[in-house]
Nucleic acid binder design. Sequence first.
DNA 1: CATGAATGAGGTTTCATTCAT
DNA 2: TATGAATGAAACCTCATTCAT
Lengths: 218, 218, 218, 218
Amino acid sequence: MSDPPGAGPRRRRLSEAERREQILRATVEVVARYGYDGASLGRVAEQAGVSKGLVSHYFGSKDDLMVEAVTGSVRALRESIAAQLDLSAPVPEVIRAALRRAADLHRTHRAELTAMAQIVHGLRLPDGSPRLGPADYEETHEAQRRLFARGQDEGSLRPLDVHVLAVVYQGAVDTMLGHAATHPDVDLDRFADTLADVLLGGMAVDPTDGAPGRSGCG
Amino acid sequence: MSDPPGAGPRRRRLSEAERREQILRATVEVVARYGYDGASLGRVAEQAGVSKGLVSHYFGSKDDLMVEAVTGSVRALRESIAAQLDLSAPVPEVIRAALRRAADLHRTHRAELTAMAQIVHGLRLPDGSPRLGPADYEETHEAQRRLFARGQDEGSLRPLDVHVLAVVYQGAVDTMLGHAATHPDVDLDRFADTLADVLLGGMAVDPTDGAPGRSGCG
Amino acid sequence: MSDPPGAGPRRRRLSEAERREQILRATVEVVARYGYDGASLGRVAEQAGVSKGLVSHYFGSKDDLMVEAVTGSVRALRESIAAQLDLSAPVPEVIRAALRRAADLHRTHRAELTAMAQIVHGLRLPDGSPRLGPADYEETHEAQRRLFARGQDEGSLRPLDVHVLAVVYQGAVDTMLGHAATHPDVDLDRFADTLADVLLGGMAVDPTDGAPGRSGCG
Amino acid sequence: MSDPPGAGPRRRRLSEAERREQILRATVEVVARYGYDGASLGRVAEQAGVSKGLVSHYFGSKDDLMVEAVTGSVRALRESIAAQLDLSAPVPEVIRAALRRAADLHRTHRAELTAMAQIVHGLRLPDGSPRLGPADYEETHEAQRRLFARGQDEGSLRPLDVHVLAVVYQGAVDTMLGHAATHPDVDLDRFADTLADVLLGGMAVDPTDGAPGRSGCG
DNA sequence: CATGAATGAGGTTTCATTCAT
DNA sequence: TATGAATGAAACCTCATTCAT
């Protein structure tokens, strides 16, 4: 309608990889903003600045698009965390550092975090059962169990069930990030430190490990 | 038309309150089974054994129905927990007992728990923003903060930020219940005990409070 | 927009059976007019004077609608033919009479005939293979084979393969009706008589059976 | 890009005529397999091993492609029949031989036969009316009428309306081929002979003309 | 009170066609 | 010459909602 002259080429041609990346980014933003159900392909296309047909062209179906959006977000988050963690440090220090890094994620990958939660809750198989489930977390939990087991081997963690520890730890991270999403004014670094105090207080043999202001038993 | 006697399951004439209860129960079950988006009014009506029109008649809109389903589930859960908790006991004991009670909830109110999570994630305002948010949890968090503050007053809990403690505690409960929903074979009572060990280990002054098998510092 | 006042109730309520009949009639007309592909549910709804949603409501899917349209048309055609045939007459007379009746069908059931051909050619399974095939004709062919066998028993038909005869006979009927559909000016009764002359000349022992103006061999 | 030698099945540079032929062949196969509606340009291009753009480039629109596919198939079929028919033989012999040839077509040109029927039924003008109709058969019918008229002149065919004879004959051929398409196990040569017995029995003055096993009147 | 007939908006998806490269 | 990226129209279908009965 308006179509300002000289406003640039209407139909830019990008490589497949660029378009896919662009559409996935738009998907994450729209899902984070409108929720899973509110994320229609029309809104995704509009956000990406492309036609509806192109989204289907590259991703086949809405479900496939959503699965790819989750996959991509998971990879991005994992890389972001791993890049700044020294996994060879004593386990309590790793845990405390990881919690601080997770707090950073809320600033750097807020949309991905929200979108992932939405898609995991919203995406279903045709029969109504959830499409993304525990199996998709297993890889992450497995890595955490190995970390906790190493802590117990090295004597820095108490001999609690590593399955439970992994679930509790991951749940605490999710809780913190979910809380941050709805309470933008909270000081997340302080939150992370307090959370580390609590968790390490319960998990570590010497709760003062890596903790700046903890008094211990004595 | 003539409704011959003995012609099958006669539809009883129910009072308004009974009908509403019947429909809300069906809503919870359908949402738990099919997710928020998959819970069409048609499926709810079918599950309740009434006509679609009646659902609208009693609840106005789908959104209103969902809000009532959450409200009712929250009330039911709170009553179920409160009924068996001695809130005047020392706070660490209250926490440990509450975690055990929460584990029971997974057996007695599984559908409500799942449906609540679905509705909270799925229900949105017309502009796309979430309809149920932090404000709806505030009442619960406030009660927990008072509990934790009492624990600090009585000297059984360490002086950590009660806001953080409330969020962490509630998040741990949600995590445990969410984990149970996807891992039906886990021993949830043991999980609750281990979780209590971890949380009280981090929150309590004397981590052995109320704990059966905890060794303490020495 | 125009909405003339007093133009009647916008939303008449009919019984399920009436609506289904009305929609099936519209389907047959639209398919006959626009072909199978051109028969969108929108056009069917418009022709029936109902909303698009109602068509789906009563027939589930477009495929189901089309199958029902064929089924209903077949039944109507069979009843129309059978009602006026004396099947106990000598077989050559039955054949000649049936051809005359078929010619009548072109006047009384033109839309059904055209629509059936369209649907049979157009309706496919998801994998692309035809959905309506020989099995759907089998009942008709079987009845014809019995008729021809009776003719051979009574000595009025020559001992040719009854399977072939049934196919040839039915094909001739279809040919005649298809020809009439595209040549509205042809005298179909004369056509049917000539066709009977040809077919009975080839099938009957005494080709003059039931034929008004045939000279025979002598 | 660089097109390294031996890097797989190199795509040969073809002349325009070769490309067109290749695409038309693919069109016939896809239409025969998936029906008219199921024959998207994408599938045609895939079957032909070319890009979608090229199909449009050579044939303009889908309708034009389909028309050309029919035209080409008609020409191929006519040439195939004519090549092996001695049109100067007595007309009954020509008819019997033509029916045998038609039976061969089912083996040699099955896809063309199926595709033609699909396109004739499916291809429509923008207003919904059929695009291919009687006029497109006229040339064939005209040739057949001349043949039948010659038969009547030479005294071998009875004086029936040649228009009707042409329609009946062509319809019988189509019937036989259609039947063969859905009943792959039928002995088509026997079918053709029986069909010739029936048709010549009705059309010929002396039904034994050219018939191997026919007993005549006596 | 209760039903279910009816609507119409909106979603996903397919596809013929155009055109930059 | 040939590709395939991109568009936009139209299709089918679902569903919340209204309302005659």
